[in-house]
Design a binder for these strands. Sequence first.
DNA 1: ACGTTGACTGCGCGTTCTGCGCAATACATT
DNA 2: AATGTATTGCGCAGAACGCGCAGTCAACGT
Lengths: 263, 263
Amino acid sequence: MMVSKAERRRGEIVARASEMGLASVDDLAARFGVTASTIRRDLAQLSRSGQLARTYGGAIAPGEHVETSLLQREHESFDAKAAIAGWAAEQVRPGESILLDAGSTVALLARRLPALEGLAVTTASVPVISLLRTRPELALTCLGGRLRDLSAAFVGPLTELALERLTFDRLFLGTDGVGADGSLCEAEPDQTRLKELMARRSRRIYVLAHSAKLGHAPFHSWARIDEPWTLVTDDGADPEFLDAFRRTGRDVVIRPVAQRAEA
Amino acid sequence: MMVSKAERRRGEIVARASEMGLASVDDLAARFGVTASTIRRDLAQLSRSGQLARTYGGAIAPGEHVETSLLQREHESFDAKAAIAGWAAEQVRPGESILLDAGSTVALLARRLPALEGLAVTTASVPVISLLRTRPELALTCLGGRLRDLSAAFVGPLTELALERLTFDRLFLGTDGVGADGSLCEAEPDQTRLKELMARRSRRIYVLAHSAKLGHAPFHSWARIDEPWTLVTDDGADPEFLDAFRRTGRDVVIRPVAQRAEA
DNA sequence: ACGTTGACTGCGCGTTCTGCGCAATACATT
DNA sequence: AATGTATTGCGCAGAACGCGCAGTCAACGT
């Protein structure tokens, strides 16, 4: 397996940038004996693959969550998600034990989680762990499991095994789609199974889903949660959907979106 | 104490940038109803105070301090650790299932792990998870547990619960100190218990400890591993210690340190 | 009440950096 | 040796940048 000169250079650029935190285009150009154009092309490629973040005149090592959020284009409906996450964060009380599912909206909730006395947080989401690991005031627990890289969360028998040893005051679920009948759409059966199990172990259940997810079914696995749960969404929600959904007897919380995002 | 409009805006910029990872100048300008110049000035100030990192056309959240401190720890005796980790990485074969402990040397091994067919990696270390989560060719499993923030790894009953459901071809342990009698020094009993359990679930066991750790006892909890294991260290190891250690019947692998260690 | 002061903002300027197309070159394969 | 692909250097138009200047706003002291 041959590595081209360019690949080796890119590797060294990454190493250099992560080591000293910053690398300038001109420095790198001089160091490797190539023109700035070549370095810029390298930086563009490395930035596309998330290994580096581009700056004006150079590059820096990205923060942990930058890679994911930058790469996955999860800025979509950011305002709606932030509004929903904000409301969810307000529900948590000191001393509680809460369970955080995977997903970008729930990750936002994790970030906005207030510093409460004796709060215990459990999750199977890697981004949530990265986000909360530096918060000394809360007790962080990870359900283990096999990594499902698409959702950056752990699933499988090990996850369920851990879950069966715990219960929670509040559960915050993410989802890929909500049906008008109150079912949750997921990419794989593993996830639906896990969500149902999580629900059984929790006293209060919230599903965080911005309005674009309501009535949306991108996949074909469905979780049915018979325990009462509250849908938290934004004010862009379709009234017809909400009518139908409310007839299932479940609560709905609607948060106004702060600003208009798109032009 | 009145906060000026500008200060509030800068605060929101920081919140926005850290939450979505990235914020563009034009977006921010439109959102706050000011010109790009003003946003640029804000960004310049926030970047000067270290709250933000400037990019071309916007700003991103800065790299985590935790990351740097971890890197600094990795820089101590870096060459020795790298040599040890390099040898350890060569031991792994395709199709194997390996278990990685916490610690900076083992994290280095994770970084250097070759791309092998069908490799399964299990760990309870957060840095290792962060390092390996983007490697699609390997199956990553996390033992859950309660986060022990000092070592950035999971410990406790949940960890042991998961461990009891798994076995491994190779186990790579880190440690805070190695006794001449072959015991391992750790900060807390939780960790010694976990290491002993890991050892019982693994066919081949390696302890990665650079020479400064040999005969060193910074704490007062000791793990006793009766299964045969191999000590991997560097050529700065004290001959007397090695003689005594070898008399316990255990193997030793000594790696030459590539470069002069410290100036 | 009024003028002063300081902070903040918008605008225009020249400069720097960037992205892209094109042609030349280096490298690997046949 | 020939061929095809990847990589590179260069030039140019456009975007983003920092900076200085002038106008605006609010707070403060006299």
